[in-house]
Write a protein that binds this DNA or RNA. Structure first.
Lengths: 264, 264
DNA sequence: CGTGCCAGGTGCCGT
DNA sequence: ACGGCACTTGGCACG
């Protein structure tokens, strides 16, 4: 085997780093990467075919292929956020030399789908063990927005009192359940970005089911903005919309977090 | 500059291929990759922060970073199909050495968002020019499903006659527009997998708008299956559902193509 | 494991 | 540019 294998200790976490390897060398490196469950990147001239939930063919061209330890496969062209072809985590991956090609297959059962990559040339191959225990922390999610509204119901309407949140007894999911100053039920549907048709239809479901018991129930979408179509649907269905500024909520959230940390 | 630069001719399309470069070497290579608009991959120990449509923090860990010639940035952990952080195509990318870090920033206006990657160590860096003119060819799309129904309207209902397809004059998009054996208008909404709430609400929109002109219009969802919630909504809205198997349609499509090729 | 729903959804194609 | 809509959507939470 002519390819350079790098030990872990001083050279970092890279196992293979091959430049213009032969297909045989690349094949060996891919096999070893798979058995060692390394992260593997290949840059090479390849052709891709996929059959499964849909089916596709991608003719010859240079691409970046990423194979992850969890069985994900990504095929990236030089443009675009999304991979042109892929296979999700949990795929069974194998490689072979066949008819002059380096072939990598990724198979999944349920749903049954198969991805086949054929290389005639590998320009670069790198495999590595990544040490990474960090999880991403997201801020300003819909849950946090809900928190803000629960603590500051006046942002939606004066005199509003939250009764319960995440009401699930009905045939759906209510974001916040309130009573207004007249004592009528109000269902709030929160969106942290644009409120669309789906949000309106969802709220309509909630309100309809409650109306059978309590006819005076109101439904309000709370979001920074709403699509034109959603607004039309909303009006025909007798629902309401309250614009709520995201950045204002953000600062309130920060305050709420601050006060929480002060309490600790 | 100590890093190896590889010319295009014989060595393939790889420009940089660095193993455990210093941050200075990596910085130079990143800068050159950006000016030459190459595809760049880095494996290294980094920390990521994002602020824009949402905001997030990712603490130190080893990741794969891909920077594409079109200004896309992908940050991949060793698991999962999706990048943990990213920036879409068209982002403005720059790099600097700052406070002992190699920093890569990707900025986008509209929506305003900023991605900052800080490296303390780069294990491997590869940049390349990809030659790839091929476009992916997808089969069995919704368009092909539409083709099958247009050629075989009896699959939905006996006596159905297509009048038009891809009707776009209304505030939406009608898949197929027909008349039934009684001469009444029928709107078909096609789904190649499960029909959900959104599909029903979409069809309802179409049917409602047509009803003002022609009160006897019907609406039928054609799909292999339908969610329980969607079926309930469908019934309350007076719409219909026709189960239609995708694979059956697919094989019929194949037959139709075969017979076409025989005719040629 | 299916079902439903959110996503920093992304991409494509309209006006 | 905004808007609607499909997507091999992927991912998560929940019955």
């Amino acid at each position: 085997m002519r390819f350079t294998r790098l030990t872990h200790s001083l050279e970092g976490y890279i196992y293979h780093n091959l430049l213009n390897p032969s297909l045989e060398e690349a094949h060996d490196a891919v096999k070893e990467s798979l058995t060692r469950t390394l992260l593997l990147t290949l840059i090479g001239l390849c052709q891709v075919s996929y059959q499964g939930r849909a089916s596709s063919e991608l003719d010859w061209g240079d691409r970046l292929i990423v194979i992850k330890p969890d069985g994900s496969v990504l095929i990236h062209q030089s443009q675009g956020y999304e991979p042109v072809n892929w296979q999700p985590p949990g795929s069974i991956i194998n490689t072979q030399l066949s008819e002059g090609y380096l072939v990598i297959k990724a198979i999944r059962r349920k749903p049954a789908e198969e991805l086949i990559i054929r290389f005639t040339k590998v320009y670069a191959l790198t495999s590595a063990k990544l040490f990474d225990t960090s999880k991403i922390e997201m801020h300003l999610t819909e849950e946090e927005l809900r928190q803000v509204i629960l603590e500051n119901p006046h942002l939606v309407e004066e005199g509003l009192r939250p009764v319960a949140k995440e009401w699930g007894d009905f045939s759906g999911f209510i974001d916040i359940f309130c009573r207004d100053k007249n004592g009528n039920l109000v269902v709030l549907e929160l969106k942290n970005e644009v409120a669309d048709q789906q949000a309106v239809s969802q709220l309509y479901r909630y309100v309809s089911s409650i109306k059978k018991v309590s006819p005076l129930v109101r439904g309000i979408i709370v979001a920074p903005r709403i699509t034109k179509e959603a607004r039309r649907l909303l009006m025909t269905l007798g629902l309401e919309f309250k614009q709520e500024n995201l950045s204002k909520c953000s600062s309130l959230l920060q305050k709420s977090k601050d006060s929480q940390s002060k309490l600790l």
